[in-house]
Design a protein around this nucleic acid. Structure first.
Length: 570
DNA sequence: GCCGTTTTCGGCCCGACTGTTTTCAGTCG
């Protein structure tokens, strides 16, 4: 059981108690424990095995420690099972409908017997919801629209969760005696922001031995199918996994075949056919003779192509570029010299200014920008002009103590509804880096939202538009905005956009990143870290940038601090 | 449910804003 699994279960329990109307502080305690556990560097399962006290974690007391231990030791949680007996499981689905929170869900359940998305939609269509106290026609229509959207979009697993699951399974399979080479394939290897299921590939001369070893993997919840060279499983997390074994002489061909994408593979297989060759998961064949298969490079060389990075294999022009020799030299994590968006305890971060700086330095960075929230986000303890100036003084003092490292003065200033900014110009002017972003009024029309952002860009002191669409993966759609107009506006004004590397955001999405590159707007890849460990999300952001075809020179934070300072002066 | 002590209970959830419901639930990080 992984930390993410424990966190998911605690959140599930919190949601159920919330709908039941339990004490809000109790619900909050479960949620905050889940959050702590998810970002805890050590596996709780291992802590329990070694009798390390779980109460050392923030927000975990005697009771929660006991419950978590029960969960780890037995795979079950009594309080959750009891709650599940009291409450239809479909009610949890309803929380995904924006406009519905725990109170209203309870009300819908009690008054109308609604217990699932299906019954919710039926009640909305029948016009029964508008009759309830606190609801009206507009709310009813909004609920119906949301419920219908959710229905035809089964949730895919976020890239970070899929990575963790794949890494753990591969580590397990590496211990099988006959395992030779191992790799994840599929959309995970292509770095898509979400994956449907995991594809794990192993080369070995003894398929049945690998499969026997696999079957002992403790995370398996259900075996869907089980053969000599291929098995399909469902993990406790709900994620489906395909594991395939091929001979080592076919590993490259299989890796290529199962990495996809389907559209990419169809295109290259056609190229092979034109040459009288056949490509399948075992190799490149002329008749019955295998010409290649050991590595991807050898497979692609048979059709006169260089190796193509998996992130580009979507049949979006990469094959043509490969033929012409114009494949981009994609940005790598090693190219990143700093991180330009993060929070500290001054607003809603978990670590102090100095701790964030030192953690970034340990990662090998040369600089960071500290960008706490501005005053309007009172809930996140946003900074007003006075507190921001105090922080600047603090940063000056810190910079004197740090060697070979620069903390840049920044802020994540809120864009207000009319496109004005949440802090006065004279304080924005004093910043080294001004990140600006939207945290309210997601509901504006496309025209108004676009005009709002362009107006914010007119301010001469802003630099980087953060999480430019506001979307949350598996959570909410972004606001409606004309991204092409925003990018052209940014280009004209010397403003930059962000690829926010938070796993739930990854905003900009890959296609927008590519458009930015084509228009000539540099992007910053930033983690928006609220704790030191979250600085590690940079890798996800880099993957997203690679999918957009970005090279080193397209990314702002591959620059030196001197170059960066110049680019920030508009 | 956690935390901390003024030790076994009281405080903790922070606050501005929106919508259309008419007095508050939901949203934002």
């Amino acid at each position: 059981m992984q930390n993410a699994d424990i966190a998911r279960i605690l959140n599930r329990l919190a949601n159920m108690l919330d709908i039941e109307g339990a004490n809000a502080f109790r619900v909050h305690a479960y949620r905050s424990a889940a959050q702590t556990i998810e970002s805890h560097p050590r596996a709780l399962q291992e802590m329990v095995t070694h009798d390390a006290p779980l109460t050392e974690l923030d927000g975990i007391g005697r009771d929660l420690a006991e419950k978590i231990t029960e969960l780890i030791n037995t795979g079950r949680l009594t309080v959750l099972e009891e709650a599940e007996k009291r409450l239809p499981s479909g009610l949890l689905q309803l929380l995904r409908v924006s406009q519905l929170g725990p109170r209203r869900i309870r009300q819908l359940h009690e008054a109308l017997g609604i217990d699932s998305l299906e019954t919710l939609k039926k009640a909305a269509r029948d016009g029964r919801i508008r009759a309830l106290e606190g609801f009206g026609e507009k709310t009813e229509a909004g609920i119906l629209k949301e419920a219908e959207r959710l229905n035809d979009a089964p949730p895919r697993t976020r890239l970070d969760e899929a990575h963790r699951a794949a890494d753990d399974l591969i580590a397990w399979l590496e211990h099988a005696k006959s395992a030779q080479r191992l790799s994840a394939a599929g959309s995970l290897r292509r770095g898509r922001e979400t994956v449907g299921d995991l594809d794990i590939l192993v080369s070995s001369e003894d398929g049945p031995a690998i499969m026997a070893h696999l079957m002992a993997y403790p995370e398996i919840a259900e075996t869907v199918s089980h053969g000599k060279t291929k098995s399909t499983l469902r993990l406790h997390s709900g994620l489906q996994v395909d594991v395939r074994v091929v001979g080592d002489e076919s590993f490259g061909a299989a890796l290529y075949y199962f990495t996809g994408s389907r559209a990419h593979n169809i295109a290259t297989r056609k190229m092979a056919t034109d040459r009288g060759l056949r490509i399948n998961e075992y190799g490149v064949y002329k008749g019955k003779q295998q010409l290649a298969g050991r590595t991807e490079e050898e497979v692609l060389a048979q059709i006169d192509l260089p190796w193509i990075p998996p992130e580009l294999r979507e049949n979006r022009g990469e094959i043509e570029a490969a033929l012409e020799g114009t494949l981009p030299e994609l940005v790598t994590l090693d190219d990143i010299r700093g991180d330009l968006h993060m929070h500290t305890t001054a607003s809603d971060g978990k670590a102090s200014l100095e701790d964030m700086a030192r953690a970034a330095k340990r990662r090998g960075y040369r600089y960071i920008a500290v960008t706490d929230h501005s005053q309007r986000l009172a809930m996140a303890n946003g900074l007003d002009a006075r507190r921001l100036r105090e922080q600047m003084t603090e940063i000056d003092a810190l910079n004197e103590r740090l060697k070979n490292f620069t903390v840049l003065k920044g802020n994540e200033v809120d864009i207000l509804e009319d496109g004005s900014l949440d802090l006065p110009d004279d304080v924005l002017k004093a910043l080294d880096v001004c990140v600006f972003s939207i945290h309210s009024r997601f509901d504006l029309s496309r025209e108004k939202q676009t005009a709002r952002i362009l107006r914010a860009m007119d301010n001469p002191y802003v630099n980087i538009l953060a999480h430019p669409t506001g979307r949350i993966i598996n959570g909410r759609e972004g606001y409606d905005v004309d991204m092409e107009a925003v990018l052209h506006g940014a280009k004209a004004r010397g403003v930059f956009l962000e690829i926010n590397a938070q796993p739930a955001r990854l905003d900009l999405a890959d296609h927008w990143a590519r458009m930015a590159r084509d228009i000539g707007v540099m992007l910053a890849i930033n983690t928006d870290a609220h704790a030191t460990e979250q600085l590690g999300h940079m890798a996800l952001g880099v993957t997203q940038a690679r999918r957009g075809g970005l090279e080193r020179q397209d990314v702002l934070n591959t620059r030196t601090v001197t170059q960066l300072r110049k680019l920030m002066k508009r």
